[in-house]
Structure formats: C-alpha cells, structure tokens
C-alpha cells in the first residue's frame, strides 16, 4: 500500500438522514484509517444500519458528505456507486442472504464473477477463502440446509474474496451462538488485518465492540464517541493478532 499509514479511507461529514420523517442519523461525522477496525456500537434502532448503508453508498444521506480515499461518494451516480461497492467494498449483513440458486463456492466467488474475473481464477480465490473459514467441505452445496454459522461464514468469504478496501459488517454475528460468534469475528478481523482492509463493524454487543481498535457509540442517531479518530488507544490496543 502506497498510502501513508494515517490516511483516511472513509470520511463522513455531518450526515443527516431520516426514514419517512423519523430521523435516523443526526450530524454524524467520522473518519477511519487504513487497516483500522472501527466499531459502531449502539442498541437496535440507533441508526447503525443506516449509517453503514450511507457509508457504503447504498443510500445517499439527505444531507452531508461521504468521502472514500479522498473522492466524494455522495455525488457519484448510482452506477458509479454500484461499481464502487462491487470493486472496493465488502458487506456482511446480520443474516447472510446468500443467493439461494448458487452453490456455496459460487456465492463466495460472486463478487469476482460480477467483476468479470475468469471462472477458474474466481473459483480458486473463493475456495481459498472457504478453506480459511473452514467450510470448504460444503463448497458444492446450496445454502439451503446449511446452518446459520456456515451461511454466515460463506457470507464472510464472499465479502473478503474481492480483497476490498473497506469491509462493512452490519451485526454479522447477531444470529449466531457464542462459539460461532467468536470464531467468525476472529477470522474476519484477522483476515481483514492481513489485507489491511478497513473494517466498519456495527454491533449492539459490547464484547464484540471490544475487539475493535476504536469504538464509536451511536445513540438515537447521534454519535457520542470521538469522531476524529485521534483515540489514544488506537492501533496499539489491537488484540487481534490471533
């Protein structure tokens, strides 16, 4: 990576957004650095998903700006934002909505296939990630009949296979039991660390949030943490060398 280590990957400036009248985000500003794991911690309904959707360019906030790698995201056309999501971002939701018609490896390889990668290369990359996440055994099965943990790991493989610059994880472990939760998070964050991928992790769980380099608290659509990323604990407190 040629960027200086403290360059901002994602920057949001005073985001305001509302869902048909009810405010979801109020003056939210934040910055993330390359390779950083940023947790957005808050209860259900505090606006975490909306924030992640705005940051990843799925939604354009009513007011405010989103910048990625020094370029504005909020002014891009829907097509360019799609391309950005396809090529630079990864996403894991609370319930892995895998494409039911495709097998596990095809689901994992889908971002590469959508980018026009050759099938053989896409398959090799997907299989590598499935192996790392320990589900290469069901690579040829459909999502139907897989456990939640297996599906969520497939979704993780799908999010990581394109080596994204930013990984958005929206309550990725909310539907999992404790053992599966720890395993998934650890693998996810270790993998992201090895690729220097920035992770924006939304969670309501303090234990999960504790795994991050830095935590921002979101309450009723307002951020209550330090928005500028000058947190003293910073990267040093990273306990993710597993």
């Amino acid at each position: 990576m040629v960027d200086p280590p403290d360059s901002d990957v994602i920057e949001a400036r005073s985001l305001h957004h509302s869902h048909s009248g009810s405010p979801a985000l109020i003056a939210v500003s934040l910055r993330t650095r390359r390779g950083e794991v940023l947790a957005v911690h808050g209860p259900r309904g505090s606006g975490k998903t909306t924030l992640l959707r705005c940051l990843s360019g799925q939604t354009v906030a009513d007011e405010g700006e989103v910048w990625f790698d020094g370029d504005p995201v909020h002014t891009l056309s829907p097509l360019r934002r799609e391309r950005l999501r396809r090529e630079r971002f990864g996403w894991i939701g609370p319930e892995s909505s895998l494409v039911p018609e495709l097998t596990v490896w095809e689901n994992a390889a889908l971002p590469l296939l959508l980018n026009g990668a050759p099938r053989r290369h896409a398959k090799a990359a997907a299989m590598e990630w499935l192996e790392r996440l320990d589900i290469d055994g069901c690579a040829r099965r459909r999502p139907y009949g897989l456990t939640r943990a297996e599906r969520q790991r497939t979704a993780a493989a799908r999010a990581l296979v394109g080596e994204p610059a930013v990984l958005f994880a929206d309550e990725p472990t909310a539907a999992l039991h404790r053992a599966d939760r720890a395993l998934l998070l650890r693998t996810l964050l270790a993998a992201a660390g090895s690729q220097r991928t920035t992770v924006v992790l939304a969670t309501h769980d303090t234990e999960v949030a504790a795994l991050a380099n830095r935590t921002l608290a979101l309450v009723d659509g307002r951020l209550t943490g330090s928005p500028d990323g000058t947190d003293a604990e910073g990267m040093a407190a990273c306990s993710l060398s597993v």
Partner: peptide, 16 residues
C-alpha cells in the same frame, strides 16, 4: 426479491 436485493447490495448493476 430478497435475493435480487442482496445482489444489488453486492454491486450487481441493473444492466447485469
């Protein structure tokens, strides 16, 4: 509809 939404989230274009 849900699968389509997920594909759109991954960045699959309307054209695709």
């Amino acid at each position: 509809a849900t699968a389509t939404e997920e594909l759109r989230r991954l960045g699959a274009s309307v054209g695709t």
